[in-house]
Simulated scan of single mutants.
Amino acid sequence: MYLYVLLACVLWGSQSHSSPMKLATETSHKNHTALCAEIQKELSADNNIYEGSFSRPQNTSEELCYGEFTKNFTSTLKDLAAKYKHQDCHLIKVYKDMEELTKICPKLEPTDTPKDCTIEQSDFSQFKEALESVIISIEGWKSCQRMDGDLWHFVFSWG
C-alpha cells in the first residue's frame, strides 16, 4: 500500500515539474508566430489611411536594425492608437500585439548603441507596408523566445 502511495507521489511530482517547462517553451515559440499572424490579419483588416508623415525603415531586410524598427513602429502605433482609440480597433490591437512581441523576442529590443539604421519619412500606406514586411520576416524566424535565468536554472538542474 505504501509503495503505491509513494509511486503516485513520485509520478505526480515529476509531472508537475516537467509540464510547466515544456509548456513554457512551446508557448513562447508559438506565441511569436501567432502574434505575427494576428498583426498581419489586423493590418489587412484596417483600411484607414492616416494623414501625416511616418517614420519607417528604408530597407526592411536590415535584421540587425529590427530593434530600432520595432521601437519606431510601436511608438507611432501608440500615438495613433491614443488619437483614434474610438475609431480604429485594429490599430489598437496591432499596437498591443507589437508591445507583446517585443517582450517575447529579445532580438527586437533596441540596442544601447543604435546602428546606422536607414529610416525615412513616408505616408501611412508605406509605413503599413514596411511594418507588414518586418512582421513577415519575424514570423519566419526559427526562434524568438526569451529564456529567463530561473528557467535556465530549472532546465540545467533537472537535466
Rank of each mutant, 00 (worst) to 15 (best):
T33Q: 14
E42P: 02
S53P: 01
Q15R: 04
L43P: 00
K85L: 07
A82G: 11
D88M: 02
P110W: 06
K103I: 10
C105E: 03
R56W: 00
D88Y: 03
H90G: 05
D123R: 14
S157L: 10
T102K: 14
F127G: 01
Q121M: 09
N72L: 01
C105D: 12
E129T: 14
S18C: 06
F124P: 01
K78V: 08
L3S: 05
K71E: 11
K22A: 14
P106Y: 10
T74C: 03
Y50K: 03
G149T: 14
P114Y: 06
A34M: 08
C65H: 06
E62D: 15
P114T: 11
E99K: 10
W152K: 15
L77C: 03
S28G: 12
A81V: 06
C117G: 04
E42S: 11
M147C: 07
Q126K: 13
K83A: 09
W158I: 05
K115D: 12
F54S: 02
D46Q: 13
Q145V: 15
L101P: 02
L131G: 00
L3H: 06
Y95S: 12
E139G: 10
E51P: 01
S125A: 10
C89Q: 04
C117H: 08
K93E: 11
Q58I: 06
N72Y: 01
I119A: 09
N48M: 13
I135T: 01
S122L: 08
L64K: 14
L35F: 05
H86P: 01
L43H: 01
L151Y: 09
H17R: 09
T102W: 05
E42F: 05
K83Q: 11
Y84S: 13
D148S: 15
L43Q: 01
K128I: 04
E51L: 10
S16Y: 12
S143E: 09
C117D: 08
L6V: 11
K93H: 10
Y4P: 02
S61V: 08
Q121S: 14
P20K: 13
L11N: 13
V94P: 00
Y4I: 08
N47R: 15
I119F: 14
